[in-house]
Amino acid sequence: MTTLRPTRLAALALGATLLAGCGAAQAERAVPIPAAARDVAPAPGLQTAVLAGGCFWGVEAVFQQVRGVRDVTAGYAGGTAATANYRDVSSETTRHAEAVRIRYDPRVVSYATLLRVFFSVAHDPTQVNRQTPDVGTSYRSAIFAQTPEQRAVASAYIAQLGAAHVFPRPIATRVESGGFYPAEAEHQDFFRRNPSHPYIVRWDKPKVAAFRAGFPRLAS
């Protein structure tokens, strides 16, 4: 059984209460944002992106819906291998962020397009060290650039969106460096394996629905 940290336990309790009261998940929508002015040049073979946007269950679920994405792995980025496990990361002392590793075909979907989904619907990039009910540095918004070109494109897009004032608050997302370590098996493909889980129903199903409604041409 998954051992959940206190913030997520509280979210589960809230979700269960809300579901009991209304029988439906809260509606969400994709934030309309412009495409990035810069992009990573396509290269042969599959490419990798690592993004952190709060609980990895929902972020994984959104990117699993994107056409051209071949696989998504939930994990921990930004800390060391020695503490890359749910128990230690839950202490909020390891500097990891819950993140996803996305392997994608650049002939089908580009890096900048993945970033557009990330900022528009996968999470709220204006929240600092949290995502909705989950609080802590491990829930921060971060892009772990895998190449200098990714770093340049991500930094330029953050600046572009900030200048366009598409969000009501400043963007908190930081471009970071660090390794990625896959999470425990129980966290992989969590959305698909646990469709009735209260946290999934309350927070993540609306996110996936918002992606499919907001980006129908990208949906697989």
Rank of each mutant, 00 (worst) to 15 (best):
S110G: 14
E92T: 02
A16E: 15
G178M: 05
V40S: 03
F190A: 09
H123C: 11
T2L: 13
G21H: 07
R8E: 14
H123F: 12
T3N: 10
A185P: 11
A35K: 10
A183H: 10
V59Y: 02
A142T: 09
T94Q: 07
S155W: 04
S120R: 01
K205E: 14
N85P: 08
Q47C: 08
A213D: 14
T3S: 06
Y76F: 14
V166L: 07
Q131A: 09
D105F: 04
V117G: 01
A142F: 08
P182W: 07
Q150C: 11
R67H: 13
A122I: 01
P32A: 13
V100M: 08
P198C: 08
E28R: 15
A145I: 12
T83L: 15
A142S: 14
P195W: 11
E98L: 10
A97M: 01
D39A: 10
A172H: 04
A213L: 06
R95M: 10
S177G: 14
I143M: 11
V31A: 13
G78I: 03
G78C: 05
Q65V: 02
P44V: 01
P216C: 00
D189G: 12
D134M: 07
T83K: 12
W203E: 13
R192T: 13
G68T: 01
S155R: 15
P106D: 03
R70K: 13
A52Y: 06
L115H: 05
I200H: 12
P42H: 02
D204P: 01
T7Q: 07
G214P: 00
A164G: 09
V72M: 04
F56C: 13
K207H: 04
R169K: 15
L161V: 08
A112Y: 04
V100K: 05
A16M: 13
H187G: 14
G58L: 09
R103Y: 02
Y76I: 07
D124S: 08
S220C: 00
Q188W: 12
A24G: 00
A20H: 08
R101M: 13
T3F: 02
G58W: 09
Q150V: 10
R107D: 13
S90A: 15
A30E: 08
T173K: 03
V208Y: 05
C22L: 09
G179H: 07
L9T: 12
L19M: 10
Q188V: 10
G58P: 07
V31I: 13
D204K: 08
R38W: 10
T147H: 10
F144P: 08
P42R: 00
F56L: 11
A25N: 04
R101Y: 04
A43D: 00
A99W: 03
R192I: 05
Y111A: 04
A84N: 08
R151H: 12
F215P: 01
W203Q: 12
A20I: 02
R103I: 00
P198K: 09
R116C: 06
D124G: 03
F180W: 11
Q26S: 11
A25L: 00
